[in-house]
Amino acid sequence: MQAEHRDHVHGSDGHRHPVDFDPTAAGPDPFPPEGVGGRPLRIGIGGPVGSGKTALTAALCRTLGEELELAVVTNDIYTTEDADFLRQAGVLERERIEAVQTGACPHTAIRDDITANLDAVERLCERYSTLDLVLVESGGDNLTAVFSRGLADVQVFVVDVAGGDKVPRKGGPGVTTADLLVINKVDLAERVGADMEVMLADAHRMRGELPVLAQSLTDDPAASAAADWVRQQLAAHRSAVGPAAG
């Protein structure tokens, strides 16, 4: 909830923005990312169980696999199911997919102790020295699970229409701080009685200027808009660190 008329001023340039009383609305991450000299861009893909993280990952691999050197790290609560799904979907060679075990704590493995994931990323980088992009897909978790900036340069949080149209309103760091919020399975909105207008309005209210993307992989299996966003991130990453081959 924002108090529209009670702006406050701070900083040397005296800029103004609305006072926000919502304790879950953390806004954009205020910390600059770690140095990324010459290494591939790492994008985290997180979100609750069943929201479509693996489907989005597979779609991005299918769409971007031709134009980019990419690899994937999966974090499953249980088996190597997601990795197996990607392998069977035939969107990437088997050797480009690494699965890590998370010790029953998927959020720990992407946030508090990123060791296993960094090891997996490093194995992929050793195997393919010219990688442009590594997608790190988290295990399905709760609304507070976000990626450490030591692991992911930018992150996508995936929620879905079938999970209830109240999810964006609930907030939490995933919804409020992710660099991109994807609202998935919009083709099901009518079936599950979800109000897309409310969902999108809530998402924008919670996230301020951060982007929100509504998509259906049934209607657009290529995930075109998400792929465009990835291309933009990659361009920004390259202009910040120079070409990956350097």
Partner: peptide, 10 residues
């Protein structure tokens, strides 16, 4: 809480 990867080993 030491982030050395121990949490994934039993």
């Amino acid at each position: 809480r030491f982030p050395g990867g121990g949490h994934a080993h039993s």
